[in-house]
């Protein structure tokens, strides 16, 4: 590993140590700690979960159990941009499935897959709560509404 890679690892380790410090002794802190750890690393590497277990003095199985229960947590690296296509009722009756198909075709990946260049990860979500603008999707923190398959290429180009 080169020097900058090492440096990056150190910054992340420091950030995680800060998080663990901040939640020290707080009841029920496991989920927020995992959320912040995932913010730092982009996903939850096994050794990070092990470290969290050690610091919280709880079994690794408990950390792993929580991390695999909630859909928000990811145990594998993901792409730079996360596309989340809404599969809610309103989006379903207004053509959400066709949207998923169009994006899947444009990127050449299926649900829960990442493009070879690591640019996009394609995920679905139960409901984004913007049903008035169905069908909708989110790319990172940005929500896009009133979509049609024709609008997809121009949106993807921005990322």
């Amino acid at each position: 590993m080169d020097a900058s890679g090492n440096n990056d690892m150190n910054i992340k380790a420091k950030a995680l140590a800060d998080v663990l410090e901040r939640y020290g002794g707080t009841k029920g802190a496991l989920i927020p700690i995992l959320q912040e750890a995932q913010e730092i690393y982009g996903y939850l590497p096994r050794e990070i979960m092990q470290e969290i277990a050690k610091k919280l003095k709880i079994p690794f199985s408990q950390v792993y159990g929580v991390a695999t229960f909630y859909t928000q947590f990811h145990l594998k690296p993901r792409g730079q941009n996360i596309i989340r296509i809404c599969q809610g009722t309103a989006c379903h009756v207004r053509g959400g499935a066709r949207l998923l198909e169009a994006i899947s075709k444009a990127l050449g990946i299926g649900k829960n897959e990442t493009t070879a260049d690591g640019r996009f990860t394609l995920e679905t979500v139960a409901c984004l709560g913007s049903c008035g603008l169905a069908p909708v999707m989110m790319i990172n923190e940005e929500t896009y509404g009133r979509l049609t398959p024709e609008k997809i290429p121009a949106i993807l180009e921005k990322y």
Partner: peptide
């Protein structure tokens, strides 16, 4: 407390388990 993406946590006892930092069952 921010949830972590489990629909069942809308059920009150599952929600409490989740606040306590456990699997939301």
């Amino acid at each position: 407390k921010a949830g972590a993406g489990a629909f069942v946590c809308g059920e009150e006892t599952a929600l409490l388990a989740s606040i306590e930092g456990r699997r939301g069952m």
